[in-house]
Amino acid sequence: MEKVSNSFVAKNTFVENLNPMTKILAVFSLGLGTLIFPNSWLGLGVIVLLFFVAGSAKMLKEFAKIMFGFGIPITVMLMFIQGCYSPKNVTFIADLGFAKVGLEGVLYAAKIISTLLVFLGSFYIMNKTTYTGKLVAALTATGLPPKAGYLVLASLNVVPQMQRRMSVIQEAQSARGVETGGGIIARVKAYIPLLGPVVMSSLTDAQERGMTLETRGFGITGVKQTSYVEVTKSTADKVLKFILILFFAAVIVLTILMKLNMI
């Protein structure tokens, strides 16, 4: 298992070997399909599917941690707000004393929660199983301008780079005898001296990166630019794309039919 960056660890799984554009299509197809579907049942089914996908990608523990860590608080909050105070409430299923819980509000909250978790879970799997270089290469191959691709790459890398740089500076200061542990106040005081070196080194890196791109002819027009990272499309990508498009089309048709029956 080779560690490539702070957010991507190569594990050579089926999900990891998929084309990044297939994963992006999966995020939007599953997320938008859950969003337009009239109730939360589709979202719950997709969430169960995402857990199986995370297991096959060897990241079930991390996936469950973020899903439950985000899902439980947001579920409690939305169930309380929508269940007790939604204007859609007509049928009441419980009396809390200070407020009544409405069935319509609970169902609406479940719909919002399932949609949020589908978007969160699918994007998390895509992000953790996709090397940033491959993602940008795939976007560029679909027609995205190279400069826009570089902006995407730089934006995705800025946080891991800042974390690595801060860790290095913090270790250097600890080696010089600067106190970096203790309580909250002590930690805040320890992080303040880190800001200067981190900001200055970030500005220096940005200047050096700009000079490097210029010397390599990044802004030259009229030439075909190549990528060091090679992105391929397999038979599995084609089959999965077909399934995702078919899924989204079926959700649209089923949603229309369900709404017509309601009318």
Rank of each mutant, 00 (worst) to 15 (best):
E2I: 15
K3P: 00
V4L: 05
N6C: 12
V9N: 11
A10H: 14
N17V: 05
N19A: 13
P20Y: 02
T22V: 07
K23W: 02
F28I: 12
L30I: 07
G31I: 11
F37E: 07
F37C: 03
W41H: 12
L42Q: 01
G45M: 01
V46A: 03
L50H: 05
A54E: 00
A54H: 05
G55F: 12
E62Q: 13
E62A: 14
F68S: 01
G69C: 04
I72Y: 09
I74P: 08
I74W: 12
M77F: 14
L78D: 03
F80A: 14
F80S: 02
F80E: 00
I81R: 07
C84E: 00
C84N: 08
S86A: 04
V90Q: 12
F92A: 05
L96T: 06
K100Q: 12
K100H: 01
V101K: 01
V101I: 13
E104I: 04
V106K: 02
L107K: 12
A110P: 00
S114H: 03
T115L: 10
L116Q: 00
L117H: 06
V118H: 03
G121P: 04
S122L: 10
Y124L: 04
T129R: 00
V136R: 03
A137I: 01
A141S: 04
G143Q: 06
P146G: 05
A148V: 15
G149C: 07
L151Q: 06
L151V: 15
L151G: 08
L151W: 04
V152W: 01
L153R: 07
V158F: 14
Q161F: 15
R164Y: 02
Q170I: 04
Q170V: 09
A172V: 11
A175I: 14
V178L: 13
V178P: 08
G183M: 06
I185P: 05
V188I: 15
I192E: 02
P193N: 08
L194I: 00
L194G: 07
G196C: 04
G196A: 13
P197C: 01
S201Y: 06
S202N: 10
L203N: 00
T204H: 04
T204C: 10
T204M: 13
A206C: 08
E208M: 04
E208P: 01
E208Y: 09
E208I: 04
R209T: 15
E214D: 10
R216P: 03
I220T: 08
T226V: 10
S227H: 12
Y228H: 11
K233E: 14
T235D: 11
D237A: 10
K238M: 12
L240Q: 05
K241C: 14
L244Q: 02
L246T: 15
F247G: 02
A249Y: 02
A250Y: 14
A250M: 09
L254G: 01
L254E: 07
T255I: 03
T255M: 11
T255G: 10
M262R: 11
I263L: 13
